[in-house]
């Protein structure tokens, strides 16, 4: 399976929110990384067919998705950003509704619901109303509804926003398990969501695709540019003013700073292993 974006461009009025986006995606997890307003949701909306691009096209296995008609939607599972669903619905009732929307045959509905609830570990919450679910459970319900139609492509827009660390880890693990034979596109501005599970990362800035590659490939560009620096409390503000700081850690009276800098900084410093967060900082930091 291959999903290809060719010259996808989108304007809102005169503002260009997606600028000549080109990419090729196959099975596996892809992280779509970028700050708020970088064009992630616009790209996703075009990808799932609810927004028209001004130019360009999306091809699935070489066929324009617009020509595939609603059959294309059969192959897509989607979780929107910050969904709250219907608070008065029970979990199973909501999934039944989604089955109806996704045209899952009535005879298969109950089987599918049991299957997806098991996959996202929500079987016990089956009869609960959605209003009574925690944030993490709601997101897992979001995943459940997205995979009801057994899609080849799973699109998740900011799925971990507002989740506590434990739920975030649980969520990541579910995504990893689901990614077999599927293309998963996970849009986020939280680097740790994708750092360990993404096959490739796409970095968007102001509607432009800046980078695409494995986390290792992308991080490799920063080899020799990430440093740990030790400084006193008095010198801390000077470092903060001059460099992009990835982390500040207090050790007794001193501070260890993680900074991104092309040249070795003055003072007590040593090179550090670069990560995706450093890449993010180097692109979107001051």
């Amino acid at each position: 399976m291959e999903l290809r974006f060719e010259h996808v461009t989108k304007y809102y009025g005169k503002q260009c929110v997606l600028d000549n986006f080109n990419a090729k995606l196959t099975e596996g997890i892809y992280g779509l990384l970028g700050p708020n307003g970088s064009g992630k949701t616009t790209l996703i909306n075009i990808m799932i067919g609810i927004l028209d691009a001004n130019a360009g096209r999306v091809l699935l296995d070489g066929v324009d998705v617009r020509q595939m008609g609603v059959e294309y939607l059969d192959r897509i599972g989607y979780l929107p950003q910050y969904p709250t669903f219907y608070k008065n619905f029970r979990v199973d009732e909501f999934l039944e509704y989604m089955c109806a929307l996704k045209n899952v045959p009535k005879t298969q509905t109950q089987g599918r619901i049991s299957e997806v609830l098991k996959q996202v570990n929500l079987t016990d919450a089956c009869k609960k109303t959605i209003g009574a679910l925690s944030g993490g459970m709601k997101q897992r319900l979001g995943i459940a509804q997205a995979i009801l139609n057994r899609p080849d492509i799973l699109v998740l827009d900011e799925p971990t926003a507002g989740l506590d660390p434990l739920e975030r880890i649980r969520f990541r693990n579910i995504i990893s398990r689901l990614s077999r034979d599927k293309l998963v596109l996970l849009a986020t501005h939280i680097v740790s969501d994708i750092e360990y599970i993404a096959k490739e990362v796409l970095i968007l800035k102001k509607g432009r695709l800046l980078m695409q590659g494995t986390p290792e490939e992308i991080s490799r560009d920063l080899t020799g540019k990430v440093w740990h620096v030790v400084t006193s409390e008095a010198g801390l503000s000077d470092w903060v003013d001059r460099y992009a700081i990835g982390n500040i850690k207090r050790i007794e009276k001193d501070f260890v700073l993680r900074i991104v800098c092309a040249d070795q900084p003055e003072g007590i410093s040593e090179p550090a292993e670069p990560g995706l967060e450093d890449v993010f900082l180097s692109i979107f930091g001051n």
Binding site: N45, I48, G49, I50, V70, L73, D74, I76, Y78, P80, Q81, Y82, P83, T84, F85, Y86, M98, A100, L101, K102, N103, Q145, N149
Partner: peptide, 16 residues
């Protein structure tokens, strides 16, 4: 709109 269900409905086969 408030629940973001409009997007989900649109992205589903029968929602179209």
């Amino acid at each position: 709109k408030e629940t973001k269900m409009s997007n989900l409905i649109l992205a589903s086969k029968n929602g179209k």
